[in-house]
Amino acid sequence: MTPLALEPPVEEPVSLDEARSFLRLDQADEYDLLAMLLTAARLMVEAACGRCLVDQHWRIVVDRWPQEGEIRLPLSPVSAILAARVYDQAGLAQPIDPAALSLESLSDPPLIRIAGGVPTPGRDHGAIEIDVVAGFGPAATDVPAPLRQAVLRLAARWFEERGDVASRDARALPVPIAALLAPYRRARL
Results as ranks from 00 to 15, higher is better:
residue 48 A to S: 11
residue 160 E to G: 02
residue 167 S to A: 13
residue 90 A to K: 08
residue 103 L to V: 10
residue 34 L to S: 03
residue 143 V to D: 01
residue 73 L to R: 08
residue 21 S to H: 05
residue 137 G to R: 00
residue 92 L to A: 12
residue 73 L to N: 10
residue 51 R to Q: 13
residue 155 A to W: 08
residue 124 D to E: 15
residue 138 P to I: 02
residue 71 I to E: 00
residue 101 L to F: 01
residue 162 R to W: 08
residue 77 P to I: 05
residue 160 E to W: 03
residue 44 M to D: 13
residue 15 S to R: 03
residue 145 A to T: 12
residue 61 V to Q: 13
residue 49 C to Q: 04
residue 50 G to M: 06
residue 102 S to L: 12
residue 84 A to I: 05
residue 29 D to G: 00
residue 140 A to M: 03
residue 85 R to C: 02
residue 103 L to G: 06
residue 65 W to E: 07
residue 105 S to D: 09
residue 128 I to L: 08
residue 113 R to S: 12
residue 121 P to E: 07
residue 147 L to C: 06
residue 111 L to G: 11
residue 46 E to F: 06
residue 89 Q to D: 11
residue 40 A to F: 04
residue 134 A to M: 08
residue 75 L to V: 12
residue 48 A to K: 00
residue 45 V to E: 04
residue 118 V to P: 06
residue 66 P to Q: 07
residue 30 E to V: 09
residue 59 R to S: 14
residue 169 D to A: 14
residue 2 T to L: 15
residue 142 D to H: 12
residue 171 R to V: 13
residue 56 Q to F: 01
residue 140 A to D: 05
residue 50 G to A: 09
residue 1 M to Y: 11
residue 150 A to I: 09
residue 170 A to G: 08
residue 155 A to S: 12
residue 4 L to Y: 10
residue 46 E to V: 09
residue 98 P to Q: 05
residue 128 I to A: 05
residue 22 F to D: 12
residue 7 E to M: 14
residue 2 T to M: 14
residue 173 L to Q: 03
residue 88 D to R: 07
residue 30 E to W: 03
residue 104 E to A: 10
residue 102 S to Y: 01
residue 62 V to E: 14
residue 182 A to G: 01
residue 43 L to M: 10
residue 7 E to R: 15
residue 122 G to E: 10
residue 6 L to N: 15
residue 44 M to F: 02
residue 115 A to D: 15
residue 112 I to A: 10
